[in-house]
């Protein structure tokens, strides 16, 4: 069965989020967020700084514990899981791509070691095979194989970000969290990364939750879009519909504030 057939065949959401709320004292991080994410689907979350999109992402990825609500991954209650299980999930089935590659890479470890870490974490003990897989993944993110023993500090920003993606995808995760993955990159580098991500999403049938403030990025990458303001989801729907026919006042403001090129 191809990835696509598998995706089309399932009608069960991979991730079910229900009433997720996180408060910081009296301040709201995010409130009452609910959505379903299906296999192969890319969900964009947009909003300005402080809108709660990053809080939401970190609650979903298990970096923070929400105060209220439920998260079900593949039918399992994530918040009720033991930490061992949750952490195992986050280094096998899940992946997290940080905005700053330095937060997601081990800068003192070679590119090959960075990619191989997740394999070794799940028990790979054959050096040759680990290296072979690392080399394969470097190729897939367009990093020349002869850089396998170089440290990420010798890489450009775009290469570091691609390395971070390879490091995350090597264990074939099904759910990928991305926090502003193209932020801080040159526009031409961004385009290359977007193209790469789109191909990987399609070929591997990844489900992705991508947080960004860049509407152009979500238009090209996300199937669906969620707009957040002051911790709440003010609008969600098909990406192009939300961007071209926004219903909520805030979304209209957001869309009309983008500089046209």
């Amino acid at each position: 069965m191809t990835v696509l057939e598998r995706i089309v065949a399932t009608d069960e959401p991979l991730l079910k989020v229900d009433g997720l709320t996180k408060r910081y004292g009296s301040r709201i991080g995010c409130a009452d967020v609910s959505f379903d994410l299906y296999p192969g689907e890319v969900l964009g979350i947009v909003g300005e700084s402080g809108s709660g999109k990053s809080t939401l992402l970190s609650c979903l990825a298990g970096h923070q514990r929400p105060d209220l609500g439920r998260i079900a991954y593949d039918g399992r209650d994530v918040l009720a899981m033991s930490e061992t299980d949750r952490r195992r999930l986050s280094r096998t089935d899940w992946a997290y791509v940080h905005q700053n590659p330095r937060d997601g890479l081990r800068m003192g470890v070679s590119a090959g070691g960075n990619v191989g870490e997740r394999l070794m974490a799940v028990g790979a003990r054959h050096y040759g095979e680990i290296r072979g897989k690392a080399s394969d993944w470097l190729g897939r993110v367009e990093i020349s194989c002869d850089r396998i023993d170089d440290r990420p500090s010798a890489f450009s920003g775009g290469m570091q970000q691609r390395l971070q993606i390879a490091r995350n995808l090597v264990t074939s995760p099904r759910l990928v969290f991305m926090d502003e993955p193209t932020g801080g990159l040159d526009v031409s580098v961004q385009a290359r990364l977007l193209d790469l991500l789109r191909g990987l999403v399609r070929d591997l049938g990844l489900s992705v939750i991508i947080v960004t403030h860049d509407l152009a990025v979500v238009r090209l990458l996300a199937h669906r879009l969620m707009v957040m303001k002051s911790g709440r989801v003010v609008e969600q729907g098909l990406t192009d519909q939300v961007l071209d026919d926004p219903q909520h006042a805030y979304t209209q403001l957001l869309v009309s504030s983008v500089l046209q090129v």
């Binding site: 280094r91 070679s110 090959g112």
Partner: peptide, 18 residues
Amino acid sequence: ELEEYGLMHVKLYEDIAR
């Protein structure tokens, strides 16, 4: 606590790579 020891092998991997 969680027996997450993949990192130890990263160290050995780096040794062999280098």
